[in-house]
């Protein structure tokens, strides 16, 4: 990968290896499905507590696999729009996915209620920033702000967008990203030089 980056005529090698990488990665999905069958199958056979849920999981996995791999429409592939697999995606997968993530709204709110107590000056800054971003980047917050006397003339949305999000937030996120990227490059070098071998199950 490094050589093909520097020697342009070898870029086909990079594309080939990338393609190999994606194929092997997809085989990992197959491995995941097989592991699910093994783990949950054992629980069903042993009839451990709540084995009915394991059965539901395996049935839903099997049904999705059957419709996604073997039930072909008149024209096209089983995963195309309008197929049974597409029905599963639209009416089961998407609602479950969206609802599970939207459920986090309540838990983040309750967690923040406990965590965001202004115990120190730094915690207060975090609290105030989160409050500003949550309240004044929505129409209701803007309406409340502009109906306030004296301060209502100040453009709070532009302040949050330009100064907080574009200034302080960009700086903090960039510092984190730069630190993480330097770490990623150094761990990659350690792997290539054989210093880091723990991914093979050995000691580092």
């Amino acid at each position: 990968m490094i050589i093909q980056f520097y020697i342009y005529p070898l870029d086909w090698l990079g594309e080939l290896f990338n393609s190999f990488y994606n194929i092997v990665l997809t085989f990992a999905f197959v491995l995941g499905a097989i592991s699910l069958f093994q783990v949950h199958g054992k629980k069903i056979i042993a009839q451990t507590s709540g084995w009915g849920y394991n059965l539901v999981l395996l049935v839903s996995l099997t049904v999705t696999l059957i419709f996604g791999l073997f039930v072909f429409p008149e024209k096209g592939q089983p995963v195309d729009a309008g197929t049974a697999f597409d029905w599963i995606f639209n009416n089961i997968f998407t609602p479950l996915c969206s609802t599970t993530y939207s459920l986090l709204a309540f838990y983040i709110a309750s967690a923040s209620f406990r965590a965001f107590r202004a115990r120190s000056a730094q915690a207060t800054v975090l609290l105030v920033t989160a409050f500003l971003v949550m309240l004044f980047r929505v129409p209701l917050g803007e309406y409340i702000w502009h109906s306030l006397p004296w301060v209502g003339q100040f453009d709070i949305t532009a302040f949050i967008d330009d100064w907080i999000m574009g200034g302080f937030n960009a700086a903090g996120q960039r510092a984190i990203m730069l630190g993480a990227s330097v770490g990623l490059v150094s761990i990659s070098l350690k792997i290539l030089l054989g210093i880091e071998v723990s991914y093979l199950g050995g000691n580092d």
């Binding site: 996995l61 999705t64 996604g68």
Partner: peptide, 11 residues
């Protein structure tokens, strides 16, 4: 959700 997700991504 777990079963359908695993099947979906595999397909």
């Amino acid at each position: 959700f777990v079963g359908v997700s695993a099947g979906y991504w595999m397909c």
